[in-house]
Amino acid sequence: MTIQEVMKASPATVAPDETFGHAFALMMEQKLTHLPVVGSEGVYLGMFDLRDIWQVLLPKAALLAMDSLSDLAFFYESKKQLIDKLRHAANRRVEEFLKEEDAPLEVYPDMPVIEAVLLLHRHDGVLPVVDRKSRRLVGMVGAWDILERLR
């Protein structure tokens, strides 16, 4: 079984120059956890996902990638503040959130599904399916796409 057989073709996408607010609304509307960012001619650029939204909500001190602030149990944050944070971020562009990853998480249509299973076991989430040559996004594959086929 190849990934092409299980993937969801033509998923919702967002362009890099669109706003955080637009991407956020799209995700809320369709209850998406991952929104692929595609550039001109549908080339896959990276993933906008829930972590980007969590990042906006968190105090900067918690994002230092050090365990020195191991939790925020002592912290205080009002509902209004969290809403304000989302509002402040609304006009930021999606491309600001694209992460530089050492090994981008992606799969190709002709790969065996078990490769996607391995990646999902390691990272969880939803994987972008990218055409090897043109780097265009051809689909997305997540847990339910695979598990539906196995019933």
Partner: peptide, 14 residues
């Protein structure tokens, strides 16, 4: 400083 700076950032941000 590794211990104090993150707390400082949290406090100044608030």
């Amino acid at each position: 400083v590794l211990l104090i700076v993150p707390v400082t950032l949290a406090i100044t941000e608030e």
